[in-house]
């Protein structure tokens, strides 16, 4: 009986953290699918968003939940900026050049915060969301639950945007075939701008929500970006439901491995599955849009 509860608890933990992974992965996946660029700085945007929430809380007393809309808008524009000032010049560049560019961004952001805030771990004390929900012996932290909820809402909004609006359809067309989209009169430059904006805004939401139950520190992006790579590869890049599937799967694998084998080795399972998928099913389980 205890085992059943344990397994249930592990599944719930996996889904809760998987929601965050999915939210991080969906932005990465969008940019990967549309631009054919893997954003190595993705985890550092996440860290930056968590820090913004932390700053709003510590200097202005705003709870991360309250400052969330602000962070989203800021990161939307940071995404625009990234495309406008850096990535715009690198369209059609060789893979290595785009990897190097995003890696350079990653170093600048990561160590920029490192220099300013020092490598210390920080927590937001007394957030609005605290405590846990208890159902017999299973506990569900409220902060994580609300995060999952917000992640779901974000995904639904993003999915509807891509599916039902004109711009969304243009994004999907560009992801499928840039040249054809161009010939159909799609303003590809603008699509790239929107893609970066949306992708970074998504990771902004994830970072802000993460700050309510996770430590905030300059190097936190390193593990998250790898997990996001794994989620995207598992799901297949360039699709929303692929990222959701990937994020949840990675969350579950991580929690099961961590609980039943060894907490220190939980990420070994994640990366192991990641490599196996790359070897045997390199397109992931869901293709592009």
């Amino acid at each position: 009986m205890d085992l059943v509860y344990l397994i249930l608890q592990v599944i719930i933990n996996g889904i809760l953290i998987g929601g965050v992974y999915a939210l991080i992965a969906v932005g990465l996946s969008l940019i990967w699918g549309v631009m054919e660029i893997v954003n190595f700085a993705h985890g550092d945007y996440l860290m930056a968003a968590a820090f913004f929430s932390f700053i709003f809380w510590s200097y202005m007393g705003l709870d991360p939940l309250i400052s969330l809309p602000l962070v989203v808008v800021i990161f939307l524009f940071i995404g625009f900026g990234t495309q406008k000032f850096v990535m715009k010049r690198l369209i059609d560049s060789p893979t290595l050049i785009t990897i190097a560019a995003t890696f350079a961004l990653s170093l600048i952001i990561r160590y920029g915060f490192f220099v300013v805030f020092k490598p210390d771990y920080r927590v937001i004390r007394d957030p609005l969301l605290q405590g846990s929900l208890h159902i017999s012996s299973i506990s569900i932290p409220i902060a994580k639950m609300v995060t999952l909820l917000i992640a779901i809402i974000t995904m639904i909004l993003l999915f509807s945007f891509l599916k039902y609006t004109k711009k969304g359809r243009a994004i999907r067309a560009t992801a499928q075939d840039r040249e054809v989209a161009k010939s159909l009169g799609v303003n590809v430059e603008q699509i790239f701008l929107i893609t970066w904006g949306l992708g970074i805004a998504c990771v902004g939401i994830a970072g802000a929500m993460l700050s309510t139950f996770y430590y905030v520190f300059p190097l936190m992006g390193v593990t998250f970006v790898l997990i996001a790579f794994a989620s995207v590869t598992l799901g297949g890049f360039g699709s929303v439901h692929g990222a959701i599937f990937g994020g949840l799967a990675i969350g579950l694998i991580q929690q099961f491995g961590g609980t039943f084998v060894s907490p220190a080795l939980k990420d070994v399972f994640v990366f192991g599955v990641f490599i196996l998928v790359l070897i045997f099913k390199p397109k992931g389980f869901f293709g592009k849009y």
Binding site: A230, F271, I279
Partner: peptide
């Protein structure tokens, strides 16, 4: 594996080895 895929696969392998050695 082509391009990005090879790059991320090498990262994953390197991380696995590192995690195993750490433990």
């Amino acid at each position: 594996l082509k391009g990005h895929y090879f790059a991320v696969a090498t990262i994953a392998f390197a991380e696995i080895v590192k995690l195993l050695f750490l433990n």
